[in-house]
Design a protein around this nucleic acid. Sequence first.
DNA 1: GCATGTTGTAACACTTTATCTTACAACTGA
DNA 2: TCAGTTGTAAGATAAAGTGTTACAACATGC
Lengths: 147, 147
Amino acid sequence: MQISSRFTVAVHIFACIAAFEKDYKLTSDFLAGSVNVNPVVIRRILQQLKAANLITVSRGGGGASIVKPLNEITLFDVYNAVECVENGKLFHFHENPNPKCPVGRNIHNALDDKLHRIQQAMENEMCKITIFDIVKDTQAYIEQENK
Amino acid sequence: MQISSRFTVAVHIFACIAAFEKDYKLTSDFLAGSVNVNPVVIRRILQQLKAANLITVSRGGGGASIVKPLNEITLFDVYNAVECVENGKLFHFHENPNPKCPVGRNIHNALDDKLHRIQQAMENEMCKITIFDIVKDTQAYIEQENK
DNA sequence: GCATGTTGTAACACTTTATCTTACAACTGA
DNA sequence: TCAGTTGTAAGATAAAGTGTTACAACATGC
C-alpha cells in the first residue's frame, strides 16, 4: 500500500502558506480550495503539523503560519508529523510466524535489521530535502508560466 | 500506511524453501505452517513470485523451488514481485490539486522529482540485500540456538 | 457585549485495501 | 484411478483512508 496522501497534502499546505501569507489569511477554507479537499481534512493535518511544532494556527481569528525558517523544515519532519506509518515502521511484518519452526522463530531476527536499513535510506533522503526546496521550485514553475 | 506484509511473507517463504528443500516437500500447507497464515495466502504469493520468474511451483505433485542462485535475488526483486505499491509509486499524491491556484497547478512539478529521489534511495538499498543474506543470517541464528 | 468568522473535534458514511476462509475444478505422480 | 496438491474464484471480515455534516469553543472587530 502507498504512503498516505496526508504527506503530499501537508507539503502542499506549506507551499501555499509560503506563497500567499503576505496577501491572504491562510484559513482551512482557503487551503482546502487549493488542495481541493474538504476543509476538515486540512484542519486535521494542520493540527498534526501544529503538534509537531512546525506551524501555528490561530483559533477564532483564523489562519495558519509557519514557525521556523523554511530551510529548517525537512520532508522527514513533515512525514513524521502526519504519521503516515504505524509506530514509525515502514514495513508491516506478518504477525505470528510459527515459533515451532526454526525459520519461523528466527525470521524476525534475520530480517529486522535489513528492513531498518532500507527504511533509514529512505528517511535519510527525506532529511536532505527541505520545505525551502519545494517552495523555491514551486515559485520557479509559477514564474516560468508568466513568460 | 505500511507496506503490505506480503513482502515479509515472501521473504519468509524463500528462507523456508532454502532451509528445508533437502528434507521436505515445500507445499503451500507446509509453508503456511511456518508463516502461520492460510495456505491460500501462500499460494497467491507463490503465484506472484512465479510470475516474476523467481520460483517454480509444481502443480499436482506439489512443492515450490527457487530457480536462481540466492545471491542473485534481491529484496527489490521480491518487493516488485508481490506488488506492494500501486504502479510502483510509493507515495500517494492527492488527486486533484486546484488548477486555478498557482500552487495547486505546480505542486506536482515541484514535488514529483523529490518523491522519486526518496523512493530511489529506498529501492537502491533493497537492491543491495539479497535472499542469500537473509538465508545466511537465519541459519546463523538457528545454529546459535543449538549451543 | 455581540455578531461574525474560524478553529477543534466528534460522529458517521463510504470506499478501498488487506487479509482470511471456504470451496472446488484442474492437474500430476504413484 | 486415487490421493494430494495447485490455481483461482467468491465472499466475509476488518482496518484505514477519505469525505462530510454538525456544532461548541474561541477571538476579533464593531
